[in-house]
């Protein structure tokens, strides 16, 4: 039951792009086409979940015992950068087809603030899912990271679908490109606001 609440809350209620404003740059950057949006979503999903688990463990067994939590930001970003590199190398060796699909998005992910944002959120924020506020344990953190990145994928794929239609419509000159895209996301965010309060 609790996991269900985490999932619904992370995907719909506190959608990472539409409610938390994380990862907006790549969201705008690669949502032109449905196929690239799907690829990017897959890569983000993979990296966010992996990075959250790794940074969670590093924080718990290394930074906290040593009293070095003030180095969180710097440690996490280095871990994420190294992790992305590693995923790239491993993927190239193990699954060239998957690498073909996700490869070009991987370097972009290091500076996707969604990854660092989720990693920091998980170890610093208290969460309430129908019970008392508490820090997430490893299992909850993993589910939260996975659900959050699925929410990212959902928003991205929905938006890419709308944007493909948008590119064929007659938009006033000054609205062309990003302005109309932002206004569209605004309307999507309004729709997602309807989910608030259900968890």
């Amino acid at each position: 039951m609790e996991f269900l609440l985490i999932i619904v809350s992370a995907i719909f209620v506190n959608n990472i792009v539409l409610a938390q404003f994380l990862g907006v740059c790549p969201f705008m950057g690669v949502s032109n086409k449905l196929s690239t949006a799907t690829g990017m979503s897959g890569a983000v999903c993979f990296v966010i979940t992996l990075a959250t688990v790794v940074t969670y463990l590093i924080n718990k067994f290394f930074l906290v015992p040593l009293g070095l939590t003030f180095l969180q930001t710097i440690a996490f970003i280095l871990v994420i950068a190294a992790l992305v590199q590693m995923v790239e190398i491993v993927l190239k060796k193990i699954s060239p087809s998957l690498y073909q699909a996700l490869g070009i998005f991987l370097p972009l992910i290091t500076t996707n603030c969604a990854v660092l944002g989720v990693a920091i959120n998980v170890v610093t924020k208290e969460f309430t899912f129908g019970d008392a506020a508490h820090m997430l344990n490893l299992g909850e953190a993993t589910v939260y990271a996975l659900a959050t990145s699925l929410g990212y994928g959902l928003a991205m794929i929905l938006f890419a679908g709308i944007r493909e239609q948008l590119s064929r419509s007659n938009v006033p000159e000054a609205f062309k490109g990003l302005p109309i895209a932002f206004i569209t996301v605004g309307i999507m965010a309004l729709a997602f606001l309807g989910f608030s309060g259900i968890v």
């Binding site: 409610a19 000054a174 302005p179 206004i183 605004g186 965010a189 309004l190 606001l193």
Partner: peptide
Amino acid sequence: LAFVMAPGAFLVLGYLMVLFNK
């Protein structure tokens, strides 16, 4: 209220961009 919530952020930025482009 919508303007201090999430949707307002996207809408205001979008319209300000239009203004800036113009």
